[in-house]
Design a binder for these strands. Sequence first.
DNA 1: CGATTTTTTGAATCATATCAACGTACGTGG
DNA 2: CCACGTACGTTGATATGATTCAAAAAATCG
Lengths: 195, 195
Amino acid sequence: MKEALCKYLREKKLDLTEDQMIFWFSLLTERKIKRGEFLLREGEVEKRGSFVVKGCLRLYSIDEKGRDHIIQFAPENWWIRDMESYAIGTPSNYFIDAVEDSEILLMDKTAEEKLMKKIPSLALFFQNLLFRRQIASQKRINATMSATADERYLDFIKTYPSLAMRLPQHMIASYLGITPESLSRVRKSISKKKN
Amino acid sequence: MKEALCKYLREKKLDLTEDQMIFWFSLLTERKIKRGEFLLREGEVEKRGSFVVKGCLRLYSIDEKGRDHIIQFAPENWWIRDMESYAIGTPSNYFIDAVEDSEILLMDKTAEEKLMKKIPSLALFFQNLLFRRQIASQKRINATMSATADERYLDFIKTYPSLAMRLPQHMIASYLGITPESLSRVRKSISKKKN
DNA sequence: CGATTTTTTGAATCATATCAACGTACGTGG
DNA sequence: CCACGTACGTTGATATGATTCAAAAAATCG
């Protein structure tokens, strides 16, 4: 399972020595989780991050009315965790579970700290990931304010075409911040326009 | 003007030596900008970040219909820039201007790189800022999906009470992603409830 | 295959937007 | 320092996009 991470790092052009890789791997835990299985529940403290080798996870909240709101999807080669709970140590307001049967690599906090200390180039690499995520979040904030549901949906399938294929529609709706019914209507009106 | 930065760093418990401070200051440019003056316009490339000593800046987009959407406010002791344009070097989709007459310290990209290399503890400090911003962005994304305009407004004045006092209402509306008219009604209905 | 989940559709409703008008506050130049 | 003009905030009437609830149709799973 760990070769997947190797391959990912090569693609990201992060060159680590054999020793560095082995050291990193020694800090990771492999795990398979089934669709619907939880990695984090509201109220728990996030103590680790996950790298998705296969499958897909999601980070989401559930509001007082019982509606869920997906903050992030994590398909292959994505990292996922509740950063707030992880960083500050407070009980999480979010859930993380598997959207599909998945294979993941877990890295806990002490492991991460050791790793960053020992391999500074990795620290830089993770910082870059954080940077990109922040850029993406800002775009998403802007999009929810300035674009209609149609536009956001079209943008979603353009940005994440493979996700749009594999995910159930109600989850895409949840990510877009609309109801499944609305998404269904959006799709209908779009397909009309195309013909 | 630079003492303001010193004070800020002390509050943040970032201990730098005299030499380090002097080195940093040598890389900064002081500037005063008047209300309404631009620091960045759509189409330009962001080449620097600003630390606000006094006053308030804002980062916002303008959509095709001419409506503006405020992504971030930066009052005293905040850093502001269009990270996307800054990091990737692409033309910005945003504007940055002064909400009030302001005093700022500018740091350009080469300065930042030099600084991070020379003072690693500062790199860590900035990384922490980025972390916190990401957490805040995630919360904001979640809020726009799960909370009503009323709730988001109440949350805003709770989280940024001093900003809520100084800023014109239409800007708060723009930040919340609603129209000024709607905010006016939201405020009305809230004040009714209180009596 | 049946059972469960997901998607679609319809009708009523709700939150917010839009447009227009009016009053108010504000800062700017004479 | 006042008067004027512009920007800001409020209000009303109406429009619109999205939600809600209910139910049927379609897809998926065991």
